[in-house]
Write a protein that binds this DNA or RNA. Sequence first.
DNA 1: CAGGATCCGTTTCGATACTG
DNA 2: CAGTATCGAAACGGATCCTG
Lengths: 146, 146
Amino acid sequence: MVKRKSDCPINYSLEIFGDNWTLLIIRDIMFFDKTCYGDFYESAEGIATNILADRLRFLISEKILKKLVSPKNKSKFIYRLTQKGIDLMPTVLDLVEWGAKYNRDTFPKKFMTWLRKDREGLMKHYREKAMLNPANSIPERRKQHR
Amino acid sequence: MVKRKSDCPINYSLEIFGDNWTLLIIRDIMFFDKTCYGDFYESAEGIATNILADRLRFLISEKILKKLVSPKNKSKFIYRLTQKGIDLMPTVLDLVEWGAKYNRDTFPKKFMTWLRKDREGLMKHYREKAMLNPANSIPERRKQHR
DNA sequence: CAGGATCCGTTTCGATACTG
DNA sequence: CAGTATCGAAACGGATCCTG
């Protein structure tokens, strides 16, 4: 587990954002339909497997993500945003807008157009999408000692 | 100078936020009247001098901050937000709100009340404050080779 | 084969001492 | 006051291995 400098009274947000990878994971799950380990591994620009596992574990421990067992395949896991994670959407979108204003490496054009024209609608769309639960998934293992 | 992983097509924002310290510096200069090295050193929860110097240099190179010579004291420098820096205000405020919702370590109570009641007014206030230039400061040294 | 864990060389960070 | 130099500690990243 990564050791973070949470021993000093630092803004909590920094524990999430003061890292190169967590925001990428959140971005991917929030807007790009990534749901499982393999998806993140592919899309988060070159993350190492151990780092990815560590960050996922961290995000789950912070209750920003939750981990579910895939209904189709018992050895596949699905990661989803919690409400706390969904609540990061305004922040992420602000960063997207800021990045688009001062840099050009950014989200797909269609997304940006939508964001500029109807930010509220876009947020509603992705918020609802994030809240759909895959029908019959089950929560990950509960405490093993009964 | 810090070496960042900007060689991969990562979101530009991460170069600013994927770090433990830059956000603290921005927070302090944006909302807490910190203007110079010593101020940041005091208030950014235990930052080391070399890291502080490095981050300030980085923020200047990214044109998020600008460095001015104090009119009073030629060996004192004043750091101020550029427009690009000021444009990070919505993001920072989102993080403040998110942090306040899910954690209690947060901004002063008065600030939070104001933020909740009148976010636009608060932003206007701090934006204007950030744009006041100290009267007769002069830009930092221009290229030394003529 | 998905989802990691482990090992290990390399890079970056950070505390302290020191300098113009 | 505003930084730089040094050096040990921590985090990263890549490869490989493990387990169901």
